[in-house]
């Protein structure tokens, strides 16, 4: 399987986990019409944790993390993010969304705005940061993802990997306390996956709380402190990465791992 991330080794000693709860999901259920997509999801995420979520397509992993910032609405159970309960109160939703950054599979940069404008938009309009200051923050994070010289170009002029790094910088400009990654490397060429994973590893080393839906098992081994395997809308197995990969408990996990690691 893809082991592209191995060039840059993550320093696990830097990644500390606190006892403070960042996300608490209890008995969450979700249906699309009659279809029961998420079944009794229970998950507690501590601040500083890096969780990798994997599973076959259609297992509900994307839907689960999209529930955390209410891109999808859950119908039963509770989600508490950063001490704020996620319900239909629009104020709470906006508050949570400002604290939770999200990176999408297809980047979803705004094509009519420059890279810099993409990064300053939310700080200026949501956080009410003065423009000058927002631009400084944006340049700081663009430097961090190693594309400060592209700031005045438009997304369409950048490669896929560069666009995804801009998307990460855009999310970071809001100074989020939690980052969600929804298959961030699935739409990228192999040569570009590495640059995006490097950025994510760096982020993990700085203690960011991360939930990442991905099939990059090399990344999971290096960075995650917990791997969650989902199938048919439920959490089937979770463990720390070494155990998870070497010693999977359930048959479904074994089958999945043999299929993605087998060739």
């Amino acid at each position: 399987m893809t082991e592209v991330a191995t060039e840059r080794t993550a320093d696990r000693t830097k990644m500390s986990i606190s006892d403070e709860v960042a996300i608490q999901i209890t008995n969450m259920n979700k249906w699309y019409g009659d279809f029961h997509v998420l079944r009794d999801i229970n998950l507690t995420v501590y601040r500083g944790e890096r969780i990798v979520i994997c599973g076959p397509s259609g297992s509900g992993k994307s839907t689960m993390i999209r529930c955390i910032n209410r891109l999808e609405e859950h119908q039963k159970g509770d989600i508490i993010v950063d001490g704020i309960e996620l319900n239909s109160d629009l104020k709470n939703i906006d508050k949570i969304r400002a604290e939770v950054g999200m990176v999408f599979q297809h980047f979803n940069l705004f094509p009519h705005l420059t890279i810099l404008e993409n990064c300053t938009l939310a700080p200026i309009w949501v956080r009410k940061t003065p423009r000058r200051q927002a631009e400084e923050i944006a340049m700081h994070f663009l430097t961090k993802v190693k594309i400060p010289d592209q700031a005045h170009k438009y997304p369409g002029q950048l490669s896929g990997g560069q666009q995804q790094r801009v998307a990460i910088a855009r999310a970071l400009c809001m100074k989020p306390r939690i980052m969600l990654f929804d298959e961030p490397t699935s739409a990228l060429d192999p040569e570009m996956i590495k640059e995006v994973l490097d950025t994510m590893i760096e982020l993990a080393e700085e203690g960011m709380t991360m939930l990442c839906v991905t099939h990059e098992m090399g990344f999971a081994r290096q960075v995650a402190n917990r791997v969650i395997f989902m199938d048919q809308g439920q959490i089937v197995e979770q463990n720390e990465p070494e155990e998870f990969f070497l010693n999977p408990k359930s048959d479904r996990t074994k089958l999945f791992l043999s299929q993605i690691l087998g060739h």
């Binding site: 209410r70 999408f104 938009l121």
Partner: peptide, 11 residues
Amino acid sequence: GQYEAADALGL
């Protein structure tokens, strides 16, 4: 995705 990205940023 454009609607979702705008939502996710808290707009």
